[in-house]
């Protein structure tokens, strides 16, 4: 199967495959491995999709796939059901709203915008958790997860690069 950008956008290729990859990496990084006392980081892999899909083009399927990915994170990680669904959708909405501004920007600037959207998603999750358990989660722990998630931008860049020009209506 070829993944060349010349072909029209197939939902399975630009939504289905990345979503499955995110789920796979999430399971992989949940392995209880500790090397020299250090555990694996826990980045939010679906943030790559939330940012990449919004930049590529508006879509009907993408928000619902993000909702499914969020529900998977909640069930797998054990958070309140809907926590990550809403957080990812808020970040997706932010990126979609600023899509015209984001298109064509340099890679460092896109990385900065991606980090900003990660911040929006984690801030939403922080607020929801605070309301849910009536206690404030540790900001330092949130910062670690923010850093780990921000480092995933190269994957989002690859996703955008591969499918950005596929739909001529949204170039």
């Amino acid at each position: 199967m070829s993944f060349s950008a010349a072909r029209p956008l197939d939902p399975w290729r630009w939504i289905g495959v990345p979503a499955l990859l995110c789920m796979g990496f999430t399971i992989l990084f949940a392995a209880p491995i500790r090397v020299f006392g250090l555990q694996l980081p826990e980045p939010v892999f679906p943030m790559v999709c939330a940012f990449g899909w919004a930049v590529i083009r508006p879509s009907i399927l993408a928000p619902f796939t993000l909702l499914v990915l969020g529900a998977f994170l909640d069930l797998f990680w054990g958070g309140a059901l809907g926590l990550w669904g809403v957080s990812l959708l808020v970040a997706y909405a932010g990126a979609l709203f600023m899509r015209n501004m984001l298109t064509g920007q340099s890679r460092p600037m896109m990385w900065a915008w991606y980090a900003a959207m990660c911040g929006v998603a984690l801030a939403t999750g922080y607020l929801i958790t605070m309301l849910d358990v009536k206690a404030a989660p540790s900001l330092i722990a949130v910062l670690w997860q923010f850093l780990a998630t921000s480092l995933l931008y190269p994957f989002a860049h690859r996703l955008i690069d591969r499918f950005e020009g596929a739909d001529v209506r949204f170039r």
Partner: peptide, 17 residues
């Protein structure tokens, strides 16, 4: 249409919460 889908998805997420 995508905006409407997004709003519907957010409402479903909030209902789940």
């Amino acid at each position: 249409t995508a905006a409407v889908a997004l709003i519907v998805a957010v409402i479903i997420g909030a209902a789940m919460l």
